[in-house]
C-alpha cells in the first residue's frame, strides 16, 4: 500500500515540475501563536504564502493546520477564549491591526469549509448573498451576471443553470461543495482558504473539485488543508507540514514529497505515522 502511495505521489509531483519564477508574497505569518484558553495550539509559525499558488497545509490530526488556516481570515475570533499572537499580514498589512475591519478582511479572504454548508435557500440566493451584502452589484442584471460567472468558474453552471431557484441543499455533496466555492468566489476574494474541502466527497466529486482548484489558482491565492497526501501533491505548489502545533517544514511541493529536510515530514508522507 505504501509503495503504491509513493509511486502515485511521485507521478503527481513529476507532473507538476513547473515552479513559478516571479513569485509574489500575498500573506505572511510571523511568529504566529494561537492559544485556546490555557492551551497553546500553535507555536511561532513563520510562513510565506505566495500569490496565485496553492499552498497545502498537511499534518496529522490536531497538529494546528486548521487553526492556522482559520487565523488567516480571523474565523478564530468567533471562538470564545481564542487568542492569536505574532503577526499575520495580507499585502503587508497586519490583519489583526485595529485599522483592519474583520468584515472587510473576510470579503478579501474567503473560506470553504470541510462539510458543504450551503444556506437553506435557492442556488441563486446562495451565490448572490455575498455580492448583495457587500453591495458589489448595482442592478439585478449585474447580480445575475456575477452569479452566472461564479457558477461557471466553480464548474457548476451547466449542471444547475435550469434550476437556479431550487434549494441549494438539494444538490449532491460534490455539487454542494462547488456551490460553496462559487459562493466564495462571488465576492471576488483575493485569497481562498479551504479546510479539507474534499473530505466529505466521493473520489469522482473530489477529482472535480481538485481540477477546479487548479484552475482557480490563476486568479486566486489558495491555501488548502488536506489529509490526503495525493491531493496535496496533485494540487499544490507549496506544502507546509505541521506537527504538534509547530511548522515542521515548508517548501515546494515536489521537494517536500521527494526530498524533505526533516525526517518527520518524510515519515508522515510515507505513512509511517499520523
Amino acid at each position: 500500500m505504501n509503495v503504491m502511495n509513493e509511486q502515485k505521489i511521485e507521478e503527481a509531483v513529476k507532473a507538476r515540475m513547473t515552479a513559478g519564477t516571479n513569485e509574489v508574497i500575498k500573506m505572511r505569518g510571523d511568529k504566529v501563536t494561537v492559544h485556546y484558553g490555557e492551551k497553546q495550539a500553535l507555536f511561532d509559525v513563520d510562513i510565506l504564502i505566495r500569490e496565485n499558488q496553492v499552498t497545502a497545509l498537511i499534518g496529522p490530526s490536531g497538529c494546528g493546520k486548521s487553526t492556522f488556516l482559520r487565523s488567516l481570515n480571523r474565523m478564530n475570533d468567533t471562538i470564545a477564549g481564542c487568542r492569536v499572537g505574532g503577526k499575520i499580514t495580507l499585502d503587508n498589512e497586519d490583519i489583526y491591526d485595529r485599522a483592519i475591519d474583520v468584515v472587510e478582511l473576510r470579503a478579501r479572504v474567503g473560506m470553504v469549509f470541510q462539510k458543504p454548508n450551503p444556506f437553506p435557500k435557492s442556488i441563486y440566493e446562495n451565490v448572490a448573498y455575498g455580492p448583495r451584502i457587500h453591495g458589489l452589484t448595482r442592478s439585478k442584471a449585474d447580480l445575475d451576471e456575477v452569479v452566472e460567472k461564479s457558477l461557471q468558474k466553480a464548474a457548476l453552471w451547466n449542471e444547475v443553470k435550469d434550476r437556479l431557484h431550487d434549494a441549494g441543499t438539494g444538490l449532491s455533496g460534490g455539487q454542494q461543495q462547488r456551490l460553496c466555492i462559487a459562493r466564495a468566489i462571488a465576492v471576488s476574494p483575493e485569497v481562498i482558504l479551504m479546510d479539507e474541502p474534499c473530505s466529505a466527497l466521493d473520489p469522482i466529486a473530489t477529482a472535480r473539485v481538485e481540477e477546479l482548484i487548479d484552475e482557480l489558482k490563476q486568479n486566486y491565492t489558495i491555501v488548502i488543508v488536506t489529509h490526503s497526501m495525493q491531493q496535496a501533491a496533485r494540487v499544490s505548489q507549496r506544502t507546509a507540514m505541521f506537527h504538534l502545533g509547530y511548522l515542521v517544514e515548508e517548501g515546494p511541493t515536489e521537494k517536500m514529497f521527494t526530498n524533505p529536510d526533516e525526517k518527520r515530514t518524510q515519515d508522515y508522507i510515507t505513512g509511517r505515522f499520523g
Partner: peptide, 10 residues
C-alpha cells in the same frame, strides 16, 4: 456551519 458560512463570506 450556517453561521460560519455567513461569517466566512464577510
Amino acid at each position: 456551519s450556517i453561521r460560519q458560512a455567513a461569517l466566512g463570506l464577510g
